[in-house]
């Protein structure tokens, strides 16, 4: 069961990528990208080493019928770029997407997140917000339950001028770890996928921002785990490519009244828990 190994190791994979990048920074500044036109994603020099680290020699298939990346071609705000990765196949017990990896290949830490889904998710989709250090291809690599890998990508121009990937101001300590759920619909619908947004108050510090004190451990959210009635909906390993106050929007399929519960852990080993009981006909927070 090679796939199971990969699933449980994905946290390590993120760390390995991170290690690679720190090594790279010691050797020299990353090349400055100033392409006016979109470079060919298949010929990217950035992708090759990342691909080797994350997936070794495994074949990666053309994924546009399985997974797609949606985002504006210009990153209006380099600190907050909304990105949606969306399955193009139904999430059934027979065939489903187990994991979506999101890679911003020119970010100092390219592996932004690994999002794991189950048939209970309803749809394998996540919308989040990312930081962009530079113009970059954004890649989504989906792993289906048959162990195959599928990839598609989008090119994004970073914003210029005074837009920067770092936080705009401090998150007050008292608010750290505060979480909110927001639902797309006003009430829950049983037996079909429902969209929910999870919001987390967190600075999601980048250890690579300027002269970050290397003796300190940067505090960023590293894992998110969502269950409904005890069943796993989505788990994710993420890093500081995710914007401050991380937001994740995803589906879950309830089959009756139940508790939607989220556990978040950050790199300072702080754990934050939030839950909400959803009942058909009862209004849900949103707006």
């Amino acid at each position: 069961m090679e796939d199971a190994v990969v699933l449980s190791r994905s946290g390590l994979i993120l760390c390995a990528i991170f290690g690679l990048v720190l090594g790279g920074l010691v050797l020299g500044q990353p090349a400055l990208a100033n392409e006016k036109a979109e470079p060919d994603p298949a010929k990217s020099e950035y992708w090759e080493p990342i691909r080797k680290l994350m997936f070794g020699d495994r074949e990666i298939l053309d994924g546009k019928d399985v997974i797609r990346v949606y985002l504006a071609t210009r990153a209006d705000d380099a600190s907050t770029v909304p990105v949606t990765v969306k399955a193009q196949i139904d999430q059934t017990p027979e065939r489903y997407i187990k994991t979506i990896y999101v890679v911003v290949e020119r970010n100092p830490s390219p592996a932004s997140g690994a999002f794991h889904f189950t048939p209970e998710s309803g749809r394998a989709q996540v919308e989040t917000r990312l930081r962009f250090e530079d113009f970059s291809h954004v890649r989504a690599i989906a792993e289906t339950n048959d162990g195959k890998l599928w990839m598609s990508s989008r090119w994004v121009k970073a914003a210029g001028g005074c837009s920067a990937p770092s936080a705009k101001n401090r998150v007050p300590a008292a608010l750290l770890g505060k979480m909110k759920f927001k639902f797309e619909e006003e009430t829950i619908k049983y037996d079909e996928p429902n969209l929910v947004q999870l919001m987390i108050r967190h600075p999601n510090e980048s250890p690579l921002a300027g002269d970050f004190d290397v003796t300190q451990v940067a505090e960023f959210v590293r894992s998110v785990s969502v269950t409904y009635d005890g069943k796993v909906i989505m788990t994710a390993e993420v890093d500081f490519s995710i914007s401050e106050n991380p937001s994740f929007r995803f589906y879950f399929t309830p089959h009756g009244k139940g508790e939607l519960r989220v556990e978040v852990e950050d790199t300072h080993d702080k754990r934050f828990v939030q839950s909400i009981t959803v009942i058909e006909g009862t209004p849900l927070p949103g707006g």
Binding site: Q29, L32, A33, N34, E133, G160, G161, C162, A164, P165, S166, A167, N169, A209, G210, D211, F212
Partner: peptide, 21 residues
Amino acid sequence: TELPRALAARGKFYANALKRD
């Protein structure tokens, strides 16, 4: 008083972007 922190977080990024432009 918040400027040093903001410069620490953004200075390098701004310098690179200036070179690019």
